Structure formats: structure tokens, C-alpha cells
Amino acid sequence: MRIGIPREIKNNENRVALTPAGADALVRRGHEVIIQQGAGRGSGFSDDEYVIGGAHIASTAEETWGRAEMVVKVKEPIRAEYGFLRDDLLLFAYLHLAADSDLTGALVAAGTTAVAYETVQTADRTLPLLAPMSEVAGRLSIVAGSNALLSAAGGRGQLLGGVAGTPRAKVLVIGGGVAGEHAAANAIGLGADVTVVDIALPRLRQLEARFGSALTTRTSTPYEIAEQIRVADLVIGSVLVPGAAAPRLVTDEMVATMKPGSVLVDIAIDQGGCFQGSRPTTYDAPTFRVHESIFYCVANMPGAVPHTSTRALSNATLPYVTAIADLGWDAAAECDPALARGLNVRSGVITNEEVRASQPI
């Protein structure tokens, strides 16, 4: 199979969908790998390294997309790339279609077979291709949030761990999944007073078993979230419903009760965000104010640490890319129900129920 790896062009997106080692593995199996010139530079990979791995270097995006039978990306195509979509192409990437009606419409109109990393789901409901980036985003959320809390950044001037004789910052994590767990771990490591809110008692028990008395847990209800929001210095929104738009759990009325200069980081922004006032931002202008609080809603947070996140992502996706390349989509999906759940759009039809409910095109 001919596999195309374009250069990512979303704002401050420095990841690449395949490492040179991944290209080498695919070439050894008889596949042709086409890498757009400079695609790996942001992650520390030169064109020469891909050539050593047996890949071909394409000089333009048009050539990369045009020669490929399967395009593997990190982030969803943006409007400048819609013209590359076609009916004999398989696209494998993070898509987040529930929050993106324009891209959904473009994929439907083009007849592209679109497979989303974030909806590949195993029988035990884990998300193997979302998990590595959730780990990165969870950890980054505390870094970004603590920076936004600095008075120089407009925040309330609160150090997460405080020092002797001063209060620790109160960090509220809404959603105890992979991203939430890693956010809590980083916040606890920095000495913050951390509370995690989740709807699933078994998950809260798992978190308490891991962190012990360093963590407080609460069952998620609107009342409980409102109470915790009121006293929080930093709020991390990490709620996920696979494939569907994120539920808006934090209202503007709740935000209005928060301390001036408090910070809210919305990890769920790719799926529409879990704060009512959320809107996607970029690393060029990552924050904005809602009432007297600061919102941080960068839609591709892991793109800021590509040396870590590219390797983590490629480690997870390569077995699935290999299966599709070896067998073709139909046979690969038949062999692996988890991969089959990744299909979002095919032949002009939205196939994922959650996406269809969010984007009734």
C-alpha cells in the first residue's frame, strides 16, 4: 500500500504521524511510504532519516496526498486540505468530528473513508490511540495552568504547592480518566491540594488506591461541581464521551463565582469543550477571560512537546497502520473490532453513531 505522511499545518502543530523507525517497519513489509519534505522536522527527524528508512520524500502536500492510498496524519485536515480528500482515499488521524461540522461535511461530500484515532475502542472500552495523547495533555494541563496562574500572565499569583506558612493552590480535576489521572499526578507532584470529580465510583476508588490521602474525590453532580469551582484556583476539564461532543459541565454562572485570576484549562476542547464559555485557541493566543477567570483552550496541546508526543503516538498507531496496509480496510476491520469502531465516515455516510447524533448531515 502507498502510505502518505503530510506535514501538519495546524497552528503550532509540530508532531508528525510516523517516525523514521515506523517508516522502516512499513517498508520492510513491502509498503511504500511517502513523507512530505520537512514533515518530521518539528519532532527532530530529518528527511535523511526517513530516506534511510526507505521512505520517499515528496516536495509538496499535493504530491503526498495525491500519491497515497492511505494518508496518516496527527490532526484533522483543516480547510486548506479539504481539496485533497477523495473517494478512493483512506484517512487515519485524530478527527473529532462531533465538534467539526465543516470537516464532517467535507468528508461526506468527498466520499473519503475516514477512520478516527479517538474512536478506536477495545472491548473493555479503553481508547488505545487516544490514551498516549491524553497522558501528555493531562500532564501539560498542569504546566499550562500553573503558568497562567502567574500574575505576569494575568492570573491570581498562586504557586501550586505554596511554601511553608502559605496555602497550597486548590486544583479541581473534572473527569478521572487517563487525562484527569495524569493531571492529578502532576498537580500532586507539585504539592497542590487536588480534588477529582467523576461520575464513576469504581474509577474514584482506583484513583484513591493509587494516590491515597494525597487526593480528594467527589462524585460528579452539578451541585458538587459548583461547590468545588467556587474555591478552586485551577480547574482542569478532562471529560470524555468517545466520539460525542463533550458535555458542558461548567456553566458561566459557576465561573462567575470563582476567585479573580483563577484558571480553567479545557482538555476536552477538541470535542467541543466541557466549559460553557470554551472556544478553541492556539498557542499564538492560548487564553481569554470569562468573567474574572482565565480560560486556556488550546486544541492541540501535545503539539508543543513533539519530541515526546510523536514517539508516543507512533508507538500506539503503528500496529493499526500496519494492519490496514497489510490487509486493506475491510479485512483489517473484520479482524479487529476495536479498529472497526474507528470508522467515522465512508462512501458519503456517517457511520459512527455518536458523530451522527452530533452532526446530523
Rank of each mutant, 00 (worst) to 15 (best):
T287A: 15
R341C: 03
V263R: 06
P247W: 04
E253K: 13
Y223K: 14
K259C: 12
L313M: 11
L234H: 08
T216D: 01
V255W: 13
C274F: 13
D252W: 00
I294T: 11
A333F: 04
D336Q: 03
T322H: 02
T287L: 13
V235C: 07
I324R: 10
C335Q: 14
F295L: 15
P222G: 03
T281F: 13
I236N: 02
V239C: 00
A312Q: 04
I324W: 09
P280I: 09
V345P: 11
I324A: 11
P280T: 04
I236L: 02
A332T: 10
T308Q: 06
V298H: 07
V241N: 06
S309T: 01
Q276K: 13
T287F: 14
A246S: 04
L249R: 02
A214S: 07
I350E: 13
T310F: 07
V265Y: 04
P280Y: 06
I269W: 13
V231M: 02
D330Y: 10
T221A: 09
W329E: 08
F295E: 14
T221L: 11
A332S: 09
D330I: 15
D336T: 10
P319I: 11
A304K: 06
S238R: 05
V345S: 14
I229P: 00
G348Y: 10
P247A: 07
M301L: 12
T221Y: 11
R341Y: 13
D336K: 07
Y296Q: 07
P306E: 08
L264R: 01
P247Q: 05
T257R: 06
P280S: 12
S314Y: 07
A268Y: 06
Y223N: 11
N300Q: 06
G277T: 15
T221M: 04
H291E: 15
T257Q: 05
C297V: 15
L313W: 00
V290M: 10
R279T: 01
A256R: 05
S293Q: 15
V241W: 00
T322C: 11
T251V: 15
A299P: 02
G303R: 09
Y320I: 15
G277P: 13
P319F: 08
N300L: 03
A256E: 14
Y320R: 14
G277N: 15
C274I: 12
A245T: 08
A285H: 09
I229C: 03
L343C: 12
T217N: 05
K259H: 15
Q276A: 08
L215F: 02
I294G: 04
T282E: 01
T216S: 01
I294V: 11
R289S: 13
M254T: 07
V298M: 08
E227F: 00
R341F: 11
A333R: 07
A331V: 12
R218L: 07
D233Q: 07
V305A: 06
F288R: 05
R248C: 04
